[in-house]
Design a protein around this nucleic acid. Structure first.
Lengths: 126, 126
DNA sequence: GCAACCTTATCAAAGCTGTGTCAAGGTTAG
DNA sequence: CTAACCTTGACACAGCTTTGATAAGGTTGC
């Protein structure tokens, strides 16, 4: 096994050296360094860089999206909060649960009065 | 049941009407409509919008990030591909401390040297 | 039937992303 | 020693995101 320099890695992966530094900067790769600071791209990084290109192309996503996914995967409180938000009331606003309805009823006056000083709520469609 | 108009919903949730339309546009909410096309924000929607603000503020993420998380949660092939890519990541320890980082860098160097056998392209540091 | 909403569509500006390029300086190979 | 690399940092620019403002027209309440 061998390690490639940034230019060599760029050639074999299809990225530019500039982009390899950028991808490292946003946390998606972390090449080893020589003592003098040169990046060393091993087989693992090269494979990751190639599959990264495929990932972006096949799903039309951006580097920032992958960086966010990485952040979610390593920050449990973040992924938990996001997942909770997504799970709550998934689509179809038509369906309001009994609990939500009850809570709404109980706090309706406080909410509406606090929020609406001059107008009234609209009539629900048939 | 009563529903709020977009302006009323904006006031109770802290968003602007403009942003409520934008949030709908990127797929994060889907308010019901009256027969004539007016958006109707029910209790579920309002709660969702409030927690969305908290989510963004507490974790310093953007609407686009949440939209991407939604896309991942509803596109199994996308989330699978992203997760696969992330799993192959040589994750570094959770740390943030400068000291720990430096120490880790040094250790990583040693690890890489052990893993890579020198051949042509680049002299792996001694 | 008018005032005050609502709708969609469009223009605009500020900010972020992705990318190139260049500069100043350190490293390495021949 | 010199050429050809490497490093970080900065300037730049196109394009996309986010957000506001505004216009043209429909709906609703009094």
């Amino acid at each position: 096994m061998q390690a490639l320099t940034i230019h060599q890695a760029a050639e074999t992966t299809g990225w530019t050296p500039r982009m390899l530094r950028y991808i490292e900067r946003i946390g998606l790769i972390e090449p080893a360094r020589t003592e003098s600071g040169y990046r060393q791209f091993g087989p693992g990084e090269l494979q990751r860089l190639r599959t990264l290109r495929e990932l972006l192309a096949e799903h039309e996503i951006g580097l920032g999206d992958v960086a966010f996914a990485l952040r979610m995967s390593s920050d449990e409180s973040l992924s938990g909060a996001v997942d909770d938000w997504l799970e709550a009331t998934p689509q179809r606003p038509e369906t309001v649960s009994a609990d939500e309805w009850l809570e709404w009823e109980q706090q309706k006056h406080a909410r509406i009065i606090a929020a609406l000083t001059t107008t009234k709520p609209m009539e629900t469609a048939a």
